[in-house]
Design a binder for these strands. Structure first.
Ligand SMILES: [Zn+2]
Ligand SMILES: [Zn+2]
Ligand SMILES: [Zn+2]
Ligand SMILES: [Zn+2]
Lengths: 142, 142
DNA sequence: TGCAAAGATGAAACTATTTGCAACTCCATG
DNA sequence: CATGGAGTTGCAAATAGTTTCATCTTTGCA
């Protein structure tokens, strides 16, 4: 397995939380960075295969779970029956998904700012609004 | 299998959408009405077993899927690894779920009204905000 | 460096949910 | 009240994700 440099920041976050930097995780992180977001576990698995054929899919799920708990990755169901993983680098966004025609629209986070504030003020709750999927009907299907 | 009366409204919605009223569905609806919301498929299955031992869990999933598409039931992941089904009778509510301590708080829908309006106005999107699970940190775990 | 403990991996088993299919049931129509 | 076709059911098999466990690796420290 080829060694490689992950982002130093990511590496430090992982190490300082008591987790190990392993070759498997470096490959997985590299694939996550390469994919333009929204990768599923088995998409990561097939991209990883060429570089590391024995890397088991459960290792991918466990790596994603760790990255999620460290806040480096979000896990979101976009309505296609798989969970999709997004590595956050700069800024957040959300998705509006039409449950009739399946259209997936990407939107920026601004619309959720008042909600986030209201949840904090009225419920003392710090909502993680980094990558939501909101289901409903698009204009054409309304 | 014992016949029984479902709510007339529910029955009409099902029938007028071209679906059949079957004894299985009557039992499933009855269990859904009896449970105080948030039943999982296999909880429904075990409640149903006594009255209808051969009723297969895939029939439950398919009935729930139909009820969901008709807008009679919502499907929500509350963070315990299963999807939970809620039969809506009057009013909606949502949940705030702490991803550190697991605490699940119920909240009314008012806080989401401005968001719903903004999504309609700015994105022409009719969001289905009937039973959301918002993940984040409760005050104690913030 | 050398070692032990904490953590990670692969493989298999397991849970949750979906799908394909042949047989069966509901119900609109006559 | 019969009947045919659409819709439904039970079952088995597939898919998605999680867990268990024995073995192996990483890393902090002597
Ligand atoms: Zn996204
Ligand atoms: Zn649409
Ligand atoms: Zn609820
Ligand atoms: Zn908490």
């Amino acid at each position: 397995m080829l060694p490689m440099q992950p982002g130093k920041l990511t590496e430090n976050t992982i190490r300082s939380s008591g987790h190990h930097i392993t070759p498997q995780r470096l490959v997985i992180l590299d694939v996550l960075k390469g994919s333009n977001g929204h990768a599923s576990a088995d998409e990561i698995h097939s991209h990883v295969r060429s570089r590391c054929p024995k890397l088991h899919i459960s290792t991918i799920y466990r790596a994603l779970d760790m990255l999620k708990r460290l806040g480096l990755v979000t896990e979101t169901a976009l309505g296609d029956g798989k969970l999709r993983y997004h590595l956050h680098v700069k800024g957040y966004h959300h998705h509006l998904i039409c449950e009739k025609c399946g259209r997936v629209e990407e939107m920026d986070e601004a619309t959720f700012t008042p909600l986030k504030a209201a949840l904090k003020r009225k419920h003392r709750f710090h909502a993680d609004l980094r990558h939501l999927a909101i289901f409903g009907r698009c204009q054409a299907c309304a």
